[in-house]
Simulated scan of single mutants.
Amino acid sequence: MSVIYDLALIKAANHNHGGYFFSPDSMRFFRSRVSEKVHQGPGGIYFVTSEQFDDRSPRLYTVRCFNPASRGIDTAGEFQAHPTSRRAHAEAARLAAQEPQP
Rank of each mutant, 00 (worst) to 15 (best):
H15M: 14
L95K: 02
K11Q: 15
F47K: 07
A97Q: 03
R33I: 10
Q40P: 11
P58I: 07
R33G: 13
I45L: 05
Q80P: 00
R94C: 03
F29L: 06
T62C: 02
H82W: 07
D6K: 09
H17E: 14
D55V: 09
E51P: 00
P100R: 04
R64I: 03
T49S: 09
D55R: 13
L7V: 06
R86A: 13
H15S: 14
R56M: 10
F53D: 09
C65S: 13
R87K: 07
E99Q: 04
Y5T: 03
M27F: 10
V34I: 15
G43I: 03
M1G: 14
A97S: 12
F21T: 09
T49E: 14
F66G: 12
D74K: 14
A76T: 08
P100E: 01
G77R: 03
S57H: 09
R87Q: 13
Q101D: 02
Q52R: 15
A97C: 00
V3R: 11
F29I: 02
S35E: 12
G19Y: 10
I45G: 05
A12C: 09
R87P: 01
T84K: 02
Q98M: 09
G44N: 08
D54H: 06
P42Q: 09
E36W: 09
A92K: 01
Y20W: 10
I73L: 13
I45N: 06
P100C: 02
R94D: 12
P83M: 06
D55H: 14
Y46N: 06
K37G: 01
M1H: 08
A88W: 03
N16Y: 13
D54M: 06
E51R: 13
A12N: 13
H15K: 06
S50L: 04
E36L: 15
G43K: 04
F79T: 00
L95D: 03
Q40F: 11
A90H: 02
A92C: 00
R59W: 01
I4K: 15
H17W: 06
R87M: 10
P83Q: 08
R87I: 00
F22D: 08
Q101V: 10
E91W: 00
N14V: 14
T49L: 05
E91I: 00
H15D: 09
G72Y: 00
A90Y: 00
I10W: 02
A90G: 01
V63A: 07
E36T: 10
P58W: 07
T49F: 02
A92H: 04
G19V: 12
A97T: 02
F66M: 07
A8Q: 15
G18S: 15
I10T: 10
P83L: 06
S35W: 12
H39D: 11
R86H: 05
E51T: 15
V38L: 07
